[in-house]
Simulated assay, not measured.
Amino acid sequence: MNVTRIGRAAVVAAAAAILLSSCAANEGGGAAPEESASTLTGTLNGAGASSMGSAQEAWIASFQTANPDVTVNYEPSGSGAGREAFIGGGVAFAGSDSLLSDDELAGEFARCAPGTSAIDLPVYISPIAVIFNVEGVDELKLDAATLANIFSGQITTWNDPAIAALNEGVTLPAANITAVHRSDDSGTTKNFADYLNKVAPEAWAEEASDTFPFASGEGAQGTSGVVEAVTNGVNTIGYADASRAGDLGVAQIKVGDEFVAYSAEAAAAVVDASPLVEGREANDIAIKIDRTTTEPGVYPLVLVSYAIACQEYADAADAELVKAYLSSIASDEGQALAAEQAGSAPISSELSLKVLDAIESIK
């Protein structure tokens, strides 16, 4: 495979970052049992979505305890960087909040067997929280159009009439808004933008993309960068995986005629109600989120993170480790662990069976 200069740089950067993070990841695994039934050995490297970083830490610790002769490393470099590293062969699997695009699927994957492609496997569901740090404001309500105008730079002050109309009785400061977005290519950005485009197209006409489309606001690297910028800034707002919201304020968003707070259950509900993307291979489980639903109890500002793997690997050792690791994270136990440690929503039993069958098909 011919890798571009940028692609080579991404692969090298991912590999270097993985080496640096290896010790920290392994230390999280705890003491291995004196005897283990596992015969697995080797090192498995992955990279990608920072949204699932906390879940990956928990999954890795559990997997390495059960398989003490295996080292798993995951670098939360962002969805775009993870997919690029996987395509170039720098890692054996990627995590991504965005599906592989048609163009990516039409290309070559360095670690996949010649003539074969990659598959998307949904393993992590989480609400995207609209986080804020506004002086004197503890609760905030926003609809999609107002949110779109804030992040596109059309609404620039907190006491703007559009925000005030949604927050009767709240004293909003006459202060400038600092809207923080991801500076790196991010699946979280793509999901956030897709929600705004589908629900408020008149305010957000841009098609969803991993790249934030406006020059307004403040950019920050990764989920942790956005959370840090909102936390340490003044009169700030941003978007991030809900597991990282911490003590920040989190806005309620308008769904139909009601304002809804995020929850894992509400995020899972909208995923289960959404169809699969048409035209994909049988084992490529890509979900088309229904952003415009107004059903009670759903939260449509949600991301589905995928494990991206080869349908068939050129190296059988890669296939063995990827199958074992991905099977563990897609299992009921793995999903429960992520829910406990990262606050994610477990994929439903029906979806889990589809994902596990697809993982079993990996060669």
Rank of each mutant, 00 (worst) to 15 (best):
V91N: 11
V91A: 14
V91S: 13
F93C: 05
G95E: 04
S98K: 07
S98V: 12
L99C: 04
L100T: 10
S101K: 09
S101V: 05
S101I: 06
D102S: 15
D102H: 08
D103S: 15
E104G: 04
L105Q: 14
A106K: 12
A106Q: 07
A106P: 00
G107S: 13
E108Y: 00
R111C: 03
C112D: 13
A113R: 10
A113V: 00
T116R: 08
A118V: 10
I119Y: 06
I119A: 15
D120E: 14
P122A: 10
P122Q: 09
Y124N: 12
S126R: 00
P127L: 02
I131W: 02
F132V: 03
V134H: 06
E135L: 00
L140K: 06
L142P: 02
A144G: 08
T146Y: 10
L147H: 04
L147C: 11
A148I: 02
I150S: 11
I150Q: 04
F151R: 02
S152K: 13
S152Q: 12
T157E: 14
N159R: 02
A162V: 07
A162Y: 02
A165W: 06
A165R: 00
T171C: 04
L172A: 10
N176K: 12
N176D: 12
N176P: 00
H181Q: 10
H181P: 03
S183T: 13
D185N: 10
S186G: 07
T188P: 01
T188Q: 06
T189I: 02
K190A: 15
F192C: 03
A193M: 12
Y195P: 00
L196E: 09
L196C: 11
L196G: 12
A200Y: 05
A203R: 06
W204V: 04
A205C: 01
E206K: 14
E206H: 10
F212M: 08
F212N: 07
P213D: 13
A215H: 02
S216L: 03
G219T: 13
A220W: 03
G222M: 08
G222T: 09
